[in-house]
Design a protein around this nucleic acid. Structure first.
Length: 734
DNA sequence: ATAGACATTCTTTTT
DNA sequence: GAATGTCTAT
């Protein structure tokens, strides 16, 4: 059968397994997605399963789309009955179908992370809670962690007063969300889980329906997701899980690699298949990845190999500053494109989003087209969120988050005072803000009533086709007018127009055309779409552009050429990770993911000096570079300053000492700003890497005194920050 | 009530 | 540096 053509033996085995539970350990670039989709296509085309009997779960919308696209290419049939999507998307689908049993309003709204934070803030305010003691962000994190552990407030064990109070607030938050008819991301999962657990007919229905449950990126599932899968597979459905423990990079938000072991044990998985042949990268790149990940103690064990040749060495570049790093990359990219590489096949990866700025700046100046993933997404833009808030109020006027966002936007004279009165009225009566409007007296009350009237008018239009409804909202709400009058409003206006287009496109693709009696079904679906798929949707889609993204968002992608930037201690691995339990291991897996994105050429760059959060920091090269065998590396700039040391350093200007511990933050030495990379005569300068007999490698971050009294402060990374007298300590420039 | 200046805080990754 | 929160002048 040509479906199976070209599969290697383990791949073929995985694809054609009998309908039993299976765990596929699929290394990076080993054809994981291909196995998953071919498996589904094989099940269907051999008549072993109908599309309706298949449930395929992925972690990202991108992956879900990709899978659907490949399947439609393989199977000439209607795949609409198949459930393919993200955990959140599928749970949403289930809850919409059974909203009554799930105790939700038909048009329940979804809170994204920002909405959730706003809701928590509002709650704390209404309860007069000190947000110093209970930081809203922390509280959100706490609530989500409980939900992801499957715990409602009554089930949380709290021993200390602080946690007891947080549990109380969790309960209050839940009550508030229920009152408003909104659910956050974690709630989608928990609600869906509880629905299945408590409602036997519904559970049986899905258990009997889904004969094959396939899970992508299984290593990224959290406890609750795993339990959700267990429930669904409880009726004899076969669980087919594909994952790679070495690519688990979401433990920080509750992902449990341990799910893989538990799955193997609890389901008595007999079919464990390893996919270890890599079809993506040249040998040197793979060797580097293997060498790095080998340093992690707890692995299921797996070693990637390839039939491809060794390829080029991995290029390492040390820059003086983040700007020089960016300039270097620009030059290399120019050279690469001149050699015929497509820009879309070149990726710039970094640990954190903040790093993209210097890169973007340099690329922009050089006129190189680029595309940044994961920046501010379409549906997260302020003007779009405003417009969506009006739409949300049409679907559900009790949505306090949406209400608060636009009650005075565009401004209509409803100030803080009035809103306080409104919040009080709502609290006293236990209603939503919207429902409390008639109970506010005076001038403020009149203005509020006018706003209520606006909502009423908008709701009258709810029966219009979605794109027209959006148009209507933009005009009637005054949003268009507002941005027309704003100086910098042009782009925002364009975005609002784009929202109308997005609505039209959405209807064209998945509209409920013809569904009767469900007046606002399209609206609700569109709003859910906006919350769940913040919209990777960006202009310049078709252009051949350089790809910029965080390592996290690069997972699952591959490129001919990859630059991993900012490979410095404190940045990658990130300093916050070093204090976390198992933090470094996760950073290392992240590095493994980054390295394995490259097919043919890999660059590792780092800077001696970097401006971060408005302050200059001097960092050592990342330990991950050292973990790669030197034979695989090619250092592009000769390590400088070998010959000169022992001389008396120049009299450095006295600087204030840094706060102890952590990374240093200093203004750069003045002598540098004009002539980067030039050597001082003595070979010692701020930013210089030095070797110390006891402490190892370090970077000079500060200096004071002169002559015999000269002292320097050195950041030795692991060994910490030290002040050393030059007359005593032997420091060799490296 | 509102806009704008000013201060403060927090910065890892995201469905 | 950005984004949010607070204060001040209108």
């Amino acid at each position: 059968m040509n479906l199976l053509e070209g599969l290697n033996p383990p791949q073929l085995a995985a694809v054609t397994l009998p309908p039993q539970h299976a765990l596929i350990l699929a290394g990076a670039g080993s054809g994981k997605t291909r196995v998953l989709t071919t498996r589904i296509a094989w099940l269907i085309s051999t008549g072993q399963a109908s599309p309706q009997q298949i449930l395929a779960v992925t972690f990202t919308n991108k992956a879900a789309k990709e899978m659907l696209a490949r399947l439609s290419a393989m199977l000439p049939m209607n795949l609409r009955g198949m459930w393919i999507g993200t955990f959140h998307g599928l749970c949403n689908r289930m809850l919409r179908a059974h909203y009554r049993d799930a105790h939700l309003p038909q048009l329940f709204q979804i809170l994204d992370a920002a909405d959730q934070l706003a809701t928590v803030k509002r709650l704390l305010k209404s309860l007069n809670i000190d947000d110093e003691k209970y930081p809203p962000r922390e509280l959100c994190w706490f609530i989500n962690a409980q939900k992801e552990a499957g715990l409602r407030p009554v089930a949380v064990e709290a021993w200390d007063d602080w946690t007891k109070k947080r549990v109380e607030l969790y309960a209050a938050y839940e009550e508030q969300c229920q009152k408003e008819g909104v659910v956050d991301f974690a709630e989608l999962l928990l609600r869906s889980y509880e629905l299945l657990e408590r409602n036997e007919p519904i559970r049986r229905h899905y258990q009997e329906r889904f004969r094959h449950i396939l899970v992508d990126e299984f290593q990224d599932t959290n406890r609750l997701q795993y339990r959700w899968l267990k429930l669904l597979a409880g009726g004899g459905g076969a669980l087919f899980c594909v994952g790679d423990d070495d690519q688990s990079i979401y433990a920080f938000r509750g992902a449990e690699v341990g799910n893989m072991r538990d799955f193997e044990r609890e389901f008595q998985v007999k079919n464990l298949i390893r996919l270890e042949q890599n079809y993506r990268s040249h040998g040197n790149i793979l060797d580097a990845a293997n060498a790095i990940i080998k340093n992690n103690p707890t692995r299921l064990g797996k070693n990637l190999w390839t039939e491809a040749g060794a390829g080029e060495p991995i290029r390492v570049f040390e820059a003086y500053s983040e700007n020089e790093e960016a300039r270097f990359i620009v030059e290399e990219v120019k050279a690469l494109t001149n050699e015929g590489h497509a820009r879309r096949e070149i990726a710039l990866l970094y640990r954190s989003n903040a790093q993209s700025r210097a890169l973007e700046h340099a690329l922009f100046n050089a006129g190189i087209p680029y595309r940044v993933y994961g920046g501010l997404r379409f549906f997260e833009r302020a003007e779009i969120k405003h417009a969506l808030a009006y739409l949300r109020l049409i679907a559900n006027a009790d949505d306090d988050t949406a209400f608060s966002r636009v009650v005075n936007f565009p401004t209509r004279g409803i100030g803080a005072r009035t809103l306080e009165q409104l919040a009080d009225a709502a609290k006293v009566r236990g209603t939503s803000l919207h429902a409390a409007i008639p109970h506010v007296a005076g001038a403020g009350g009149a203005k509020l009533a006018a706003f209520a009237e606006l909502i009423r008018k908008l709701r009258e239009a709810a029966a219009l086709p979605l794109p027209e409804l959006v148009e209507h909202v933009l005009d009637l709400s005054g949003l268009r007018e507002h941005y027309r009058n704003e100086k910098e409003g042009q782009e925002r206006l364009a975005n609002l127009d784009e929202l109308v287009n997005a609505a039209a496109a959405f209807i064209a693709e998945e509209g409920t055309a013809g569904a009767e009696g469900e007046l606002s079904a399209d609206l609700a679906a569109f709003l859910a779409h906006a919350a769940l798929e913040a919209g990777e949707h960006q202009a310049g889609e078709g252009e051949d552009a350089l790809q910029l993204m965080t390592v996290h968002s690069a997972k699952g992608l591959e490129f001919d050429v990859v630059f991993i930037c900012g490979l410095e201690e404190g940045l990658f691995p990130h300093e916050n990770s070093l204090v976390e339990e198992k933090g470094l291991e996760e950073e290392r897996r992240l590095m493994y993911v980054a390295v394995t994105r490259a097919r043919r050429r890999l660059y590792l760059t780092h800077a001696q000096m970097r401006l971060l959060h408005g302050q200059t920091r001097y960092n050592l090269p990342s330990r991950f570079i050292d973990e790669i065998p030197a034979g695989l590396l090619k250092f592009l700039n000769a390590r400088q300053g070998k010959a000169m040391f022992g001389a008396v350093p120049p009299a450095p200007t006295l600087r204030n000492k840094s706060a102890p511990g952590g990374t240093s933050r200093f203004p750069p030495a003045p002598s540098f700003s004009s002539a980067p990379r030039r050597q001082e005569s003595c070979g010692l300068r701020i930013g210089q890497t030095v070797m110390h007999a006891k402490f190892g490698l370090g970077v000079i971050v500060n200096a004071e005194g002169a002559g015999q009294d000269a002292r320097v402060q050195v950041n030795f990374g692991n060994a910490g920050m030290k002040w050393l007298a030059l007359s005593v300590a032997k420091l060799e420039p490296v």
